[in-house]
Amino acid sequence: MEFLINSLLLLMLVATVFAIVRLKRLMIGVMLMGFFSLLSANIFMVLDAVDVAFTEAAVGAGVSTIFFLAALAIVGRTSKPQNATRTFVPLAAVIITGALLVYASFDMPYFGSHDAPAHNHVVPRYLNDSPNEVGPPNIVTSVLASYRGYDTLGEVGVVFTAFIGVFLLLGAGTRKSGVERPAPPNVQAESMRQKVVLREVSDLLIAPVLIFALYVQWHGDFGPGGGFQAGVIFASGVILYALIYGIVPAQKVFPPRKLAYFPGIGFLLYALVGVVSMMRGGNFLDYGVLVHDPLHGQHYGILIIELGVGITVAAVMINIFFSLSERSL
């Protein structure tokens, strides 16, 4: 059964991708890409990767689709037809690479097999000892935040870098002489505020979305979720607000100049946990030394760094959205 669902989803993915390849209308292509992400989130779900599914749904189908749409609003929605010479070289390159991969695939451990090396070398310790060493029942959280907490710091670094990069290039709220631009006169008419159903539904949704984000933030230890997902969900709540009520009101609630501090704050919060543990005699990001009891230390450490991740991600996503959509005003 599992296999069947999985295969069906995969085939749907292939169909979607081919549709995207052939489409000239980018708008639909981007929507299909969102659909593609949603489908893959389903596959992740089927393959037991609940955290990944959660993230892919929030990021791939949600935030990044919105980024695309915001960009398309500026650059136009259609693409020119390609000329034939363009297709040959890529096709050849792709076929060669694909052939190499298929060649390699014959030696791969079969899908789902128990004795694959991937499951038998490093992972057993996580599965067996992490409840006693780290604590959280969600092993993904304990690996993410503690065993490989350093990687996650790097991940926050990536998000932060993207923020700085986008900010450097587009700059939310700083465009033209550094003052926030006044709202265009027709901002009321242009926003979707007029659409009653949309407004009512979203008014209903926004508050629960934000609360759900907080739930995901603090519940990451026990179930799927964590700072990253929470941040993205929080950001989508705000973005929803901006979409319905217009970007200017949203920027009144979250002034971009103030918001620009938060990615750094979250990042610092994360890194400072590590610095504190160094000061208490442990290694960088060794939460065990934070308080007297190592297990408690791990718990507090993970909570704080997840908070740092959440703050950074939420602030970054909102900022990037502001930056992109401001340009189309």
Binding site: V59, V143, D151, E155, V166
Partner: peptide, 28 residues
């Protein structure tokens, strides 16, 4: 199932969206 791959891909998804955002910004 193997949690390590999940952790890696969580990170990779973030990297993906970061690249997308920057790429779009440059495109704009």
């Amino acid at each position: 199932s193997n949690p390590l791959t999940h952790v890696l891909i969580l990170t990779a998804i973030v990297v993906g969206v970061a690249t997308t955002a920057l790429g779009l910004a440059i495109a704009v």
